[in-house]
């Protein structure tokens, strides 16, 4: 079964210099293992191809059923140096949530 991440998660993004951070939160505790399994650094790097020019780091927060991603070199230099309309990466959380996942035959309930 193919779903969009937005069906099982919500997110918020922001900036630290040229690094964007994206927090992804499971809408229900039982969706958290799906995030852990599918949202690998590789998968996220591919999804942000052309935007994220550096490394992707991932941190787990099982207590909040959430993952935190750092996308380095993603904001056109960051801060006041950046020429991007979204220099603070505020909408990158939405781009993350647009990701399509193949969650297997069981799907989600």
């Amino acid at each position: 079964m193919r779903i969009r991440l937005i069906e099982i998660a919500h997110a918020r993004s922001g900036d630290k210099g040229d690094t964007a951070n994206i927090g992804v939160i499971a809408r229900k505790p039982e969706f958290y293992p799906i995030l852990v399994q599918h949202l690998t650094c590789d998968r996220v790097r591919k999804h942000f191809e052309g935007i994220c020019l550096g490394d992707v780091e991932r941190f787990e927060l099982p207590n909040l059923h959430a993952l935190n991603f750092l996308l380095h070199q993603s904001l056109g230099g960051g801060g006041t140096t950046s020429l991007k309309n979204d220099a603070q990466g505020k909408t990158l959380s939405s781009l993350m949530l647009s990701m399509e996942l193949d969650v297997g035959s069981e799907g989600i309930r």
């Binding site: 919500h10 918020r12 951070n21 939160i25 941190f59 959430a66 935190n68 750092l70």
Partner: peptide
Amino acid sequence: ATVKEQLLYEIGDPC
């Protein structure tokens, strides 16, 4: 949910 979104805002290594 609103508190979680803010907790994850502009953090790095959560530990």
